[in-house]
Simulated scan of single mutants.
Amino acid sequence: MKKFPVNKETDLKSFISEVLGLTKNKAKEIIDSKNVFVNSKRVWIASHTLKKGDIVEIADIDNSFSWKPEKSVIYEDQFILAVQKPPFLESEGRKGSVEYQLRKVLDRRLKAIHRLDRETSGVLLFAKNEKIFHRFKDLWHRKEVVKVYLSISYGEAKFKKKVVNMPVDKKYAKSIFFTKKISKGFTLFEVEIKTGRKHQIRIHSSKIRHPIVGDKIYGLKKVEDPLTKNVKRQMLHGYRLRFLHPFTGKVVDIKAPVYHDFYNFGKLVKLL
């Protein structure tokens, strides 16, 4: 984490450009990553006015998430393929997404069956053709897939298990939180979701007053702890998918190991 005092009134983009010796476009990219703090508050507006005496902090840039599609496969049969999705990649759609890269390197017919948030790592499942895709989407629609996540949240949970039934975007949503370990003001949760609403775990975590570390939208508004300021993404990992395979009739249980940033932070606060 780099810390810079502000000596004169200016806008955030110009300030970062000057202190880091970058173009204003590059400075804006850093601001857009939402890893810039002004007086311990996360700021992502490039035109934000800085005043003399303000303190700007910028998280260290992490370029260690290089991803090779062919080395990310954690399960494969003649119907589906599962990969360990890294953080900072979209699941599908746009150029550069996990789906785009897999299609380019492995098989142009691959189609993402579900999604993970851009910053969320974990198991991501793909169908090998359109017919297989629709059969597996039926599993999701019938809620016949066990979906388990790991998260590191603020605060030490006082419960072993908590069932959360709170609407997300006015739609029914259910998450079950299991406390795995508490330490140093943080909790490692295992979260099973019974529905798949957008940002469901992140919203529910915030609602039960255990926001996920590194969550830039539903997390803490003011971050004082230097340990968590340098966390560049939400500490949320899609750990496990378990389902009855609609083609083979066998139970498939796929688990993805956590990425090094999740593991390193977990070790630092003695949760892993």
Score class of each variant (00 low, 15 high):
Gly155Glu: 09
Lys232Gln: 11
Gly185Ile: 14
Asn25Lys: 08
Val6Asn: 00
Arg108Ala: 11
Trp67Ile: 14
Ile132Val: 15
Ser72Trp: 04
Tyr263Asn: 05
Gly53Asp: 06
Lys13Ser: 10
Ile182Gln: 06
Ile201Pro: 03
Asp261Cys: 06
Gly53Met: 13
Lys232Met: 12
Lys250Trp: 06
Pro86Gly: 15
Tyr75Phe: 15
Ile58Met: 02
Leu116Val: 10
Tyr149Val: 15
His114Ile: 14
Asn25Leu: 08
Lys267Ala: 15
Ser40Val: 03
Lys207Cys: 03
Phe136Ala: 00
Lys267Met: 14
Phe136Met: 02
Ala173Gly: 00
Ile203Trp: 02
Lys229Asp: 00
Glu119Trp: 01
Ser66Trp: 06
Leu236Arg: 01
Asp107Val: 04
Leu116Trp: 01
Ala112Asp: 04
Lys250Ile: 12
Lys68Trp: 05
Ile31Leu: 05
Val269Asp: 10
Thr10Gly: 09
Ile182His: 07
Tyr259Gln: 03
Leu241Pro: 02
Trp67Ser: 14
Glu9Gly: 03
Glu190Asp: 06
Ser40Cys: 07
Val191Tyr: 02
Thr10Trp: 10
Tyr218Glu: 09
Gln84Ser: 14
Arg209Ser: 12
Ile61Trp: 10
Asn7Gln: 15
Glu29Met: 08
Pro69Phe: 08
Gln101Asn: 13
Lys131Cys: 08
Tyr172His: 04
Ala82Thr: 08
Lys184Phe: 10
Glu9Trp: 00
Ala127Phe: 09
Ile16Val: 05
Asp253His: 09
Ala256Trp: 02
Val191Pro: 02
Thr187Pro: 09
Ile193His: 03
Lys71Glu: 15
Lys2His: 10
Gly219Thr: 01
Val56Lys: 00
Pro226Gln: 05
His141Asn: 13
